[in-house]
Structure formats: structure tokens, C-alpha cells
Amino acid sequence: QEVVKRTPGEAEFHQAVREVIDSLGPVLVKYPEFGEAKIIRRICEPERQLIFRVAWQDDKGEVHINRGLRVQFNSALGPYKGGLRFHPSVYLGIIKFLGFEQIFKNALTGLPMGGAKGGSDFDPKGKSDNEVMRFCQSFMTELWRIIGEHTDVPAGDIGVGGREIGYLFGQYKRLTNKFEAGVITGKGLNYGGAQVRTEATGYGCVYFVNEMLASRKEGFKGKKVVISGSGNVAIYTHEKVTQLGGKVMAMSDSNGVIYDKHGINLDTVKLLKEVQRRRLKDYREYHRSAQYTPNGNIWDIPCDVAFPSATENEITGKDAKKLVKNGCIAVGEGANM
């Protein structure tokens, strides 16, 4: 209640805090000193929050103003670490929820990393490469003062892929006069990026679900799968599911759902999303038998395994009941919360 009172209107952050605190009861009973030292209260309050203006110019010369944010939540274990999200839905509550969860996700790796998150309400969709570059350069012109390989290490998230990371890193290098490769992750392999970084989240989620299925003496072979989203996580979830013998029947983007009874063609999705930066509705130009439903609900499609891989809170109680009724036996969440 104290968190809700101090941070009105930040629904996603309140949900994340409630879920974590509800699970910590046994820990506080076993270690009462955590309560005495106000550890829970401390961890719910970010160490630092930065909100800044991002002014940029489109290809017609018109100036636009967006809001940039970086919440450096906790550095108890190491430098702040967490992605940047560029999406119209971004506001402080979203960034705080993501940053709060990042503390625990990073701690579970066993690596010396703290938790942070950042982003902007800028929408890269429909923007030219030059417009995205100008926005990223303006964004980094404000952000660079508070990041560094020993301080805060951003990465990508929704709306921030290899292109955006390249523009951001280039501007950081220009401003600092340093090639500080550790300052941002998700870079291209030819300038300091890590192998398998792109595939890691999607692959990891599928490996986890494969172990879940193994507990039932089953696997992905012959299973029908639906994956929400069509970004980095969704694409590489598809790739690994297919490698393990599953068949992806449907994917989605923010405009609608594509269903292909022959199985979603991954090469086509990669072409549309990673190369041409187009919408999933254009999938039908390559596969006429596919069905596209504008603003459709992907969880209406019968499946054996479901992967919410787009954004937070995708499956409602109603959706969950429908999935079970339609034969779904496992859900693996590649998205957050």
C-alpha cells in the first residue's frame, strides 16, 4: 500500500511489486533482519530516475518532441543493467516495472549485475532509417552522462534492435571519444557484439518449455504452437521450436494475427520484420493460403503450446481458460510479466 500511495497511476509497477512481495513471505520469516533493515522498502525505491526531453527532426524538417527515461533501480550486485524500449506505451510506470523485475532476473544469472530499464514513447514503426538515427543520436546525447561499462549498461528491448543499438553506440562513441565496447549490449558482431545474443531469449524460453514437456515424457515433435509477437523473441522462439519438431501455426504483431495451416514460414517472417520492416499482414503476399485477422486474438487459435512473446500481461483469465479448453498443455512466457 505504501508503494501505491507513493507512486499513483503506475499500475504495472504496482503489479510487479505485489507479485514479488507476495512470494517473499517465507524469506522474511526465515531472515527477520531483512525486515528490520527495511530491505523490501529499499528495493522498491529506485536509486535514481532520469526523465529527459528528446527533440529530433523528421525527413521533412519538422521537429518532434519525445520523452526519454532511464530508471537505475538497484546496483547492489554490480553496474545497472537493462534494456531500452521505444514504444508509444512507454511511461514511467512501465519502465519501473521492467527495471524492478530486471533486478531479480539479473541476480539469478549469478553475474555481478544490477537492475535498470529505460526507453522512450518514440515509435520506430514507419520511420526511415535516417529518422531513427536522428532520434537515437538525440536520445544518447542526454543518456550518455549517466551510463558506462562500470556504471550502467543498456541493451535492446521492444523497438530497439541492432539498427538502433548501432546508432546509440555510435553517438556514445562520438560524445566520449572512447570505444567502450562494454557500455551497451546487443551490438553487431563486427563491432564488439556477442554471438547468440540475438537468439538467446527465444531459444532459452523454448529450452525451458522443452524441459516442462519432458516432465510429461513429451517433447515438441508434432506439437502445434502459437507465438504472439513477431520481434526478436518471437522469431527465435519460432526457430528453435521448429528445430525441435514443433509446428508454429500463428504469430502476431500490434495490428493483427497471421495463421497458416501449413505452418508459419520463418524465412518470410524474417524477411518482413528484420529486412523490410513491414507488417505481418504482408505475409499473405508470399503465402496466399494464410489467413490474416486484423486486431485478432491469437489465443483463440487451438494449440498444444503457447508462447506470449510480445509484451506484458498478454494472457487474460478468459484467454487462459480458452487455451486450456482448446487443448493447450504448456505456456512459456518470453515476454515480461
Score class of each variant (00 low, 15 high):
Gly61Phe: 05
Asn232Phe: 00
Ala194Asn: 14
Val63Lys: 12
Asn297Asp: 09
His262Gln: 14
Pro46Gly: 11
Tyr31Asp: 08
Leu168Met: 15
Leu24Arg: 05
Arg216Ile: 04
Ala37Ser: 13
Ile235Asp: 00
Asp304Trp: 04
Glu274Pro: 00
Gly245Pro: 01
Arg85Asn: 05
Leu108Pro: 01
Glu142Trp: 07
Gly148Asn: 03
Phe139Lys: 00
Ile227Phe: 00
Leu213Ser: 02
Lys318Ala: 04
Glu36Cys: 09
Gly192Asp: 03
Gly126Asp: 08
Met212Arg: 09
Val233Ile: 09
His262Asp: 14
Gly78Ile: 09
Ile315Met: 12
Ala181Asn: 09
Phe86Glu: 05
Gly188Glu: 03
Lys321Thr: 12
Gly170Gln: 02
Lys318Arg: 12
Met133Leu: 12
Val71Leu: 13
Phe73Pro: 06
Lys321Pro: 05
Met113Tyr: 13
Val324Ile: 15
Val153Tyr: 03
Phe52Glu: 02
Glu333Ser: 12
Arg6Asp: 15
Gln57Trp: 06
Asp253Ile: 10
Asn130Tyr: 14
Ile51Asp: 10
Val90Ser: 07
Arg53Val: 09
Val183Ser: 06
Thr293Asp: 01
Ser215Thr: 07
Ala76Phe: 11
Leu111Lys: 04
Gly68Met: 05
Gln15Cys: 15
Gly256Ile: 08
Val196Tyr: 12
Asn297Gln: 07
Phe139Ser: 03
Val54Pro: 03
Gly332Leu: 02
Ala155Tyr: 00
Ile158Val: 13
Gln195Val: 14
Ile147Arg: 05
Met337Ile: 13
Gln195Thr: 12
Leu266Ile: 09
Ala335Met: 02
Pro88Cys: 13
Gln57Ala: 07
Val71Asp: 04
Glu33Phe: 15
Gly148Tyr: 10
Thr198Phe: 00
Val248Asp: 01
Thr198Cys: 00
Thr237Phe: 00
Asn190Gly: 06
Thr293Gln: 01
Ala330Leu: 08
Phe86Met: 06
Lys187Pro: 01
Lys127Asp: 08
Thr237Glu: 00
Tyr191Ser: 08
Val63Glu: 07
Val196Ala: 08
Lys127Ile: 04
Phe52Trp: 13
Val324Asp: 07
Thr141Leu: 09
Leu272Arg: 00
Ala37Cys: 14
Glu131Ser: 10
Gly229Leu: 04
Lys30Phe: 09
Ile184Ala: 04
Val71Thr: 06
Lys173Asp: 00
Ala107Trp: 09
Arg284Phe: 02
Pro154Asp: 09
Tyr259Ile: 11
His87Tyr: 09
Arg67Ile: 12
Leu69Lys: 08
Ile103Tyr: 03
Asn106Leu: 10
Lys318Ile: 06
Tyr292Thr: 05
Ile329Trp: 05
Val233Gly: 00
Gly296Gln: 04
His64Val: 10
Glu218Arg: 11
Asp267Phe: 06
Asn106Met: 09
Val209Pro: 01
Lys60Glu: 11
Ile158His: 01
His87Trp: 10
Lys240Arg: 14
Leu28Pro: 05
Tyr191Lys: 03
Asp319Glu: 13
Phe100Met: 06
Gly118Asp: 04
Lys105Gly: 01
Ala330Pro: 03
Gly83Val: 07
Gly296Ala: 04
